[in-house]
Design a protein around this nucleic acid. Structure first.
Lengths: 199, 199
DNA sequence: ATCAATCTAGCACAGTCGTGCTAATTTAGG
DNA sequence: CCTAAATTAGCACGACTGTGCTAGATTGAT
């Protein structure tokens, strides 16, 4: 047999190629052919790993969410709770090239979910996960037991979540340095507000 | 010549057919053929009005934004400022089937902007318009001259905008009646907060 | 009745798409 | 060395795409 390939590495390679295609030409340009070429592989090789376009798309989405999840859970836990929450939330908003691309790919995949229903369950579980995290963080900010959030903490969490996603969307349009500063300011205010029990 | 057709009406008819296709099968399913069939017309007829797919897509987006703009500016101006602001903002969030479909089409077109750059300018101008409106509304809530918003009003407006868009995004995933209530509650709180000068 | 503008209809081309399928190539294990 | 499995390569099919183009049908104005 030929040199056995690291299947996971190969899948990641292809998913990353798919991301690049999405960023450059939109999700409609993602096909087994374009992605294979972007990855520098033959179509047959791609199809050996992802037999259908749907599988390629689904895995590309999965890996993106997984990477984001790891990046956030591995955030250093030093400093005040407020600092930590801010760090987490900032990772959900396109403040860097990295998260910006992520967000872009994310929107494309969400939009594609109408055509590829398999993507819906991913989208929904990611959403639920972030929603829960926001509530958890809000409870922590208020000094509650995060695993038994009060009604008020739940409300704060949901609000934080909405604010975060809204800012994320906005920074996709305009992300000059002033926009970034303003977004950060709004988030800081909100987090301080929650900690002070104002929201 | 044949019965001269109302060009604007025909264009609207086709744009609405395009919306239906987007809602049913996603924007990638929009082609001159699928939309013509959806509208019950021959491809030639469609192409007589929209020679290219891009023009069809752009007009579909334009009409959607125009409709939303008219719906909102025609909102009855009775009641308190707070009530009016709430009514406006509720029209930017998928609280009804109508606005929900609008939002869905909107996301699809935003995602397609990578592939069809002509859509970007539309997206950006709509965004800027809503941003300005939110600031205007925030100033009004605070009892300022809306056409000369203070720094504080500007900040409130931006925050309201982010919150609105975030909630809009969330209600695209889940929109049970409880979700709608919660979203409405958050918006009401925010608007009260701005009027009270808290935010 | 004729002319001409408008609209409808559809053919044709070159390209891409997803996917089923076969064949060649490569190399680890015996 | 040789077999068998893993991987790469790519052909083929039918379906779809956007768009250029030509005709025919329709009917208002003259």
């Amino acid at each position: 047999m030929p040199s056995r390939i690291d299947r996971e590495a190969r899948k990641a390679e292809l998913a990353e190629a798919a991301w690049r295609v999405i960023l450059r030409s939109g999700v409609s340009a993602v096909s087994v052919r374009t992605v294979a070429e972007e990855a520098g592989l033959a179509v047959g090789s791609l199809r050996h790993v992802f037999p259908t376009r749907t599988e390629l798309l689904v895995y590309s989405a999965e890996l993106m969410m997984e990477r984001a999840y790891e990046r956030i859970t591995n955030l250093p836990r030093e400093g005040s709770t407020e600092d930590h929450v801010l760090a987490v939330v900032k990772n959900l908003v396109p403040f860097t090239e990295q998260t910006r691309a992520e967000m872009d790919v994310n929107i494309a995949l969400i939009a594609e979910a109408t055509a590829v229903p398999e993507l819906k369950v991913l989208r929904d579980s990611a959403h639920a996960q972030i929603a829960a995290a926001c509530i958890w963080l809000a409870a922590a900010l208020r000094g509650e037991d995060p695993d038994a959030p009060s009604e008020a903490a739940t409300r704060s969490g949901r609000r934080l979540h909405a604010l975060t996603d809204g800012l994320a969307l906005h920074l996709m349009h305009r992300a000059e340095s002033e926009d970034l500063e303003r977004a950060a300011e709004i988030l800081e205010d909100e987090i301080r507000g929650i900690a002070a029990g104002r929201n």
